[in-house]
């Protein structure tokens, strides 16, 4: 049976570059905060630098990310309506409040950490911050999973997937910055440990990629997307960048006994991992909107 579309209209994609950037930066910010907060809870003194790097990165990235979101609004001045409403069904509404809460917590955290150190208060805000950070890293996944007509989005693994990949980018960026601190760079025991954790998250992330199989065997539209990624136009991005460069190589580097502890290789591995996460976000935004849905 032959089928040819003789006429249909092309719709501009709703999510563009700014949203892509936000998805990346917001996730990275939340991830960095989690690294910061947990290194403080579980790591002790040794991890002070990591905690600080994480907290500051979180603040910087949420600021830039938030700005991207703001700039993306058609009516920027009306952003205030995001905070005159709370819509239970809307991940965007949740997200807005989460961003607000998260930013406040991060600010306070830094304040009680670095400006006017106060251990108890820092403890408190870090714990509240963890809740917000988890929200921040996963709500975007919730949002996309509402996109029922996009097979790539409409999946229950989206929130955990976004959480995990945010942690990857958070870890990677902290590792990156840590290695750029010159003398202040923590010892290989610390960075090495971060590297190990990064491996773990990447492995979980790779496991999530099995979702591709689900897509592949799914309904026609899903299959179409899977083919696009597995063998089509975006195959290089998927296999080459996201999987090999962004996931397998960092794992390989960080699990090599000799390379894992050297500064250069840690730098390289973290950059690769960041590229991996970015390409994952790119795939979800760009490829997710690539095929016609109507």
């Amino acid at each position: 049976m032959n089928e040819t579309v003789l006429y249909n209209v092309a719709h501009e994609p709703a999510y563009g570059l700014l949203i892509l950037l936000y998805f990346f930066l917001g996730g990275m910010s939340g991830g960095a905060f989690l690294v910061s907060a947990f290194s403080r809870i579980w790591g002790g003194e040794k991890y002070n630098t990591i905690t600080r790097i994480g907290a500051v990165s979180a603040l910087v990235f949420i600021a830039i990310g938030g700005l991207c979101l703001l700039l993306d609004l058609g009516r920027m001045a009306r952003f205030i309506y995001l905070f005159t409403h709370f819509i239970v069904t809307s991940p965007v509404s949740w997200g807005s409040w989460i961003i607000l809460g998260f930013s406040i917590c991060t600010l306070l955290f830094i304040y009680f950490l670095m400006v006017k150190p106060d251990k108890d208060k820092a403890d408190l805000v870090s714990k509240i911050g963890i809740v917000f950070a988890i929200g921040l890293t996963s709500y975007t996944g919730f949002l996309l999973s509402m996109g029922k007509a996009h097979p790539l989005w409409h999946s229950a693994i989206m929130p955990p997937l976004f959480l995990v990949s945010s942690c990857i980018s958070g870890l990677a960026v902290v590792l990156l910055v840590a290695n750029l601190m010159g003398k202040k760079t923590p010892g290989p025991d610390v960075t090495g440990k971060l590297g190990k954790i990064l491996i773990a998250f990447i492995l979980v992330d790779i496991f999530f990629l099995s979702d591709m199989y689900v897509l592949y065997v799914g309904i026609a539209e899903a299959n179409e997307v899977a083919l696009l990624l597995l063998v089509g136009k975006f195959a290089f991005l998927f296999w080459g960048i996201e999987l090999i460069l962004g996931s397998l190589l960092p794992v390989a580097i960080l699990s090599s006994r000799s390379l894992a502890v050297t500064r250069q290789w840690q730098l390289i591995a973290s950059i690769f991992a960041l590229i991996g996460v970015f390409s994952m976000r790119y795939i979800f935004i760009v490829v997710g909107q690539y095929l016609p849905i109507s």
């Binding site: 719709h11 009306r78 309506y81 996109g147 007509a149 849905i293 109507s294």
Partner: peptide
């Protein structure tokens, strides 16, 4: 008058029924 032009509704409509007004920048 309440629309902030965030485009999320456009992304979420399974039917491509929505668009951003290029002048007024709302859905």
């Amino acid at each position: 008058d309440l629309c902030i032009g965030c485009k999320n509704c456009i992304a979420m409509c399974p039917y491509n029924s929505r668009f951003t007004d290029p002048v007024r920048k709302i859905a």
